[in-house]
Design a protein around this nucleic acid. Structure first.
Length: 259
DNA sequence: ATGGTCGACTCTCGA
């Protein structure tokens, strides 16, 4: 069995206990984390040591940052979308080979507003990501891609979709960009196992009582190539951590593969 | 209601 989870932590240093407790309770083989918001020299490795997990990470000051926790030491690790071109947001992607399976962890740019250059950058990022898949993965072989995709794929994946047509995480161009990356050869395993369920992974801090009123978004995803997706036997969201004081605005999503 | 609340870090930006 391979259990993989993803979590937008919104500062790893503020969420040490949350992560330690969740790892202990759920014992995933792999946990992909986004928005660590810390440069590598300040990553709280010692504080996370009690987990017993190997941790590989790439971050920067204040923003972005990704990490992969794994029970086993990865066989190889690669950082960034386009290595060596001075990519300013390299701390948005890590790929680790774990038990022979490439696992890609992404924190996709949010995009700010649909008429901003940042939004164009987000759309381009998905095009670059598809090329990255071409270069490093094969749809015929097991592979996993998970993380904060900053896209709600379908109307059911956001509360009040009619109000969010011009939102950067639901606008048709963002959904199309996301779908074109997915169409490279990935399957959304949560949606595969729960075809009709409305299940969010993110509830905005700024929206009053967003969790209590379940005004959320499903923007965190676990994707697998067909040979891998066929072995997915369970996937779910754990909203308990979001209910805790000092929580991230996202929560944990996990999937189990019978391998 | 065009806000709201967090987190990092200089004070305002990003989400």
């Amino acid at each position: 069995m391979l259990k993989v989870a993803t979590y937008n932590v919104n500062s790893i240093r503020k969420r040490i206990d949350t992560v330690l407790e969740w790892l202990k309770a759920h014992e995933p083989d792999v946990l992909c984390v986004q928005e660590t918001k810390v440069q590598d020299e300040d990553f709280p490795l010692l504080a996370l040591q009690p987990s017993g997990y190997h941790i590989t990470f790439r971050g920067m000051k204040s923003y972005n940052g990704v990490a992969i926790f794994s029970r086993e030491q990865p066989q190889s690790v690669a950082y960034g979308l386009d290595v060596g071109n001075g990519d300013p947001d390299e701390p948005r992607l890590i790929r680790a080979m774990i038990r022979g399976i490439p696992i890609v962890n992404t924190y996709v740019p949010q995009g700010f507003e649909i008429d901003s250059p940042k939004y164009q950058y987000k759309l381009q990022w998905y095009k670059r990501l598809r090329k990255y898949f071409d270069k490093h993965l094969s749809p015929e072989k097991p592979a996993i891609w998970c993380g904060d995709m900053n896209v709600a794929p379908e109307p059911v994946d956001v509360h009040s979709p009619e109000k969010h047509l011009d939102h950067v995480c639901f606008h048709e161009d963002a959904r199309k960009a996301y779908q074109e990356a997915v169409a490279w050869g990935f399957v959304d395993v949560f949606r595969k196992l729960h075809p009709d369920r409305q299940q969010f992974t993110f509830w905005d801090y700024r929206a009053p009582n967003s969790l209590a009123n379940n005004r959320g978004w499903r923007i965190d995803h676990i994707m697998a190539t067909p040979p891998m997706a066929g072995k997915c036997v369970a996937s779910d969201v754990d909203i308990e951590p979001r209910k805790q004081p000092n929580s991230s605005d996202h929560t944990f999503l996990w999937a189990e593969f019978e391998i």
